[in-house]
Simulated scan of single mutants.
Amino acid sequence: MSLIAFFGALESGLIYALVALGVLISFRILDFPDLTADGSFPLGGAIAGISIVSGIDPWIACGLGMLAGAAAGMVTAFLHVKLGILQLLASILVMVALYSVNLRIMGAPNLPLLGEETVFSNLVTNENGYWMRCVIIGGVVLIAKLVLDLFFSTEAGLSMRATGSNLRMAQAQGINTSWMTIIGMAISNALVALGGALFVQTQGGADISIGIGTIVIGLAAVIIGETIIPAKRIWLITFAVVIGAIIYKLFIQVALSSNTLRSIGFGSQDLNLITALLVVIALQLPTIKSKLLSGLRA
Rank of each mutant, 00 (worst) to 15 (best):
A20E: 06
A231K: 14
S2A: 11
S188R: 00
G73S: 03
G45K: 07
G204H: 05
I143T: 08
E226L: 05
I217M: 11
V19Q: 03
R233Q: 14
V124R: 06
I175F: 06
D31H: 11
W179H: 07
L18R: 00
M185E: 02
L236C: 00
A5V: 10
G213L: 05
I229A: 11
G45V: 10
A20M: 09
K82G: 07
A172I: 06
L142C: 13
L283F: 13
N166Q: 11
A221R: 04
L30Y: 00
I92E: 11
L3Y: 10
N126T: 13
S2C: 03
T275N: 15
S26P: 08
I281V: 15
T36H: 02
V140A: 11
I274Q: 07
L123F: 15
G63C: 08
Q171W: 00
S268L: 12
A144N: 05
M1H: 12
I4K: 14
G129Q: 04
G39C: 07
M66H: 00
L273D: 08
I228L: 15
W59V: 12
I183S: 00
G157Q: 02
I212Y: 01
A240Q: 09
L256F: 06
G115L: 08
Y16V: 03
Q203R: 14
T227Y: 11
G157C: 06
A20H: 06
M66T: 04
L43E: 08
F32G: 04
F151Q: 02
F32V: 06
L283Q: 06
I223Q: 07
L296C: 06
A68F: 01
V147S: 03
F266Q: 08
G218F: 02
I4P: 01
Y130E: 06
S91L: 04
L24Q: 14
L292H: 05
A144C: 15
V23E: 10
L98C: 09
L98T: 02
V96H: 02
A282Q: 05
I247P: 03
A172E: 12
G295W: 10
I234Q: 05
A245E: 07
L35S: 04
L219N: 07
I143G: 00
I281M: 13
P286V: 05
L261C: 11
V53A: 15
D149K: 05
L250S: 04
S257N: 15
M169N: 08
G164C: 07
V141K: 04
L191V: 06
L167E: 13
D207K: 07
I228F: 15
A197W: 00
Q173W: 07
R104A: 13
T163L: 10
A48G: 08
S54F: 07
S178M: 11
V242M: 14
V140F: 13
Q87M: 13
D149C: 15
S51V: 01
V216N: 11
L83R: 12
S268P: 08
M66G: 10
T238K: 04
A97E: 04
N176A: 10
D149T: 12
Q173S: 13
T118N: 12
S294N: 12
V254C: 12
N259C: 01
I50Y: 02
L148I: 04
S257M: 06
Y248V: 01
I183Y: 05
G55L: 06
F32Q: 01
M169V: 13
N102T: 08
L24A: 10
Q269E: 14
I208L: 15
L261E: 09
I252M: 15
N272W: 01
T36M: 09
I60N: 09
Q201F: 04
F251R: 00
V222S: 00
S40K: 02
S263P: 07
E116W: 11
